[in-house]
Design a protein around this nucleic acid. Structure first.
Length: 255
DNA sequence: GTTGAGCGTT
């Protein structure tokens, strides 16, 4: 994105890309353009932003029309204090699409093989692996602190299936005949049955769930759900188990 | 309001 009015990357033919690092998060392309344009012909200035927040990532790409000017800009702007931060200007080593570029100039196109030249960094990029499961900036600091919310919780994995899978695996190991496939199979059958019933906690009396929390026959708000989770949360497994299995230590009757 | 290693978009 650049203030040139174009959406994607303009004509990057014979252009030299400069990587500007250590820039302030407030620094924008408009701020860098005049600064870099002073030393040469800047064809485009792009500052990668976060797709979630949209804020700058702290670095920018400046493309010059000539290498000599780019080199001069690097020598001049490198280490220069911008917006209160000393920026680092250097030639980009990789193109927008992971092309191999030398001195900011693209010398090698993307190979047919997906093996990007930047295999130096095994970590995946956010755009390739952009998923809310492992998204994170290249910041090991508090940077992601604000992005990370307490709401994000890892999804539970299916451990039960693995257990059964292993049992089956061992059977196939060759010990099945040894135990007498049939007898063992029968035993496993019950085991599976029991196991299946175990995880599935059937509520003895579903109505009880609604009992403690009396549901108004007619809701004041028609067709409007004030809450969706709270009611479920009210029912605690302990209370349910205590009521259905054994009376509470303190019986209201004796009181 | 915060942060700080690095390599890019419609």
């Amino acid at each position: 994105m650049s203030h040139f009015g174009r959406s994607g990357p303009p004509d990057i033919k014979d252009t030299y890309s400069l990587l500007v690092l250590n820039i302030s998060f407030r620094t924008t392309a408009d701020d860098l353009f005049p600064l870099f344009d002073r030393y040469g012909k800047v064809v485009d200035v792009f500052i990668p932003r976060d797709r979630r927040t949209g804020e700058s990532r702290g670095f920018a790409f400046v493309r010059y029309k000539y290498a000599d000017e780019a080199q001069k800009a690097v020598d001049r702007l490198d280490g220069r204090n911008v917006d209160g931060r000393n920026i680092m200007v250097q030639f980009a080593k990789y193109g927008p699409n992971a092309e191999r570029i030398q001195k900011g100039r693209i010398v090698e196109a993307i190979p047919k093989t997906r093996g990007r030249s930047r295999s130096r960094s095994p970590r995946h990029r956010y755009r390739d692996d952009y998923r809310e499961k492992d998204y994170r900036r290249r910041s090991h600091s508090r940077s992601r602190g604000r992005y990370e919310s307490d709401r994000y919780h890892e999804r539970e994995r299916d451990h039960r299936r693995r257990s059964r899978s292993q049992s089956r695996s061992r059977s196939r190991s060759g010990s099945l005949d040894y135990y007498g496939g049939r007898g063992r199979d029968d035993r496993r059958s019950r085991s599976v049955s029991y196991d299946s019933a175990s995880p599935i906690r059937h509520i003895p009396s579903p109505e009880r769930s609604l009992t403690p929390h009396r549901t108004p026959p007619s809701s004041p708000n028609k067709g409007s759900h004030s809450v969706r989770s709270p009611p479920s949360r009210n029912v605690s497994p302990q209370d349910r188990g205590a009521n259905s299995r054994s009376p509470s230590p303190r019986s209201p009757n004796e009181d």
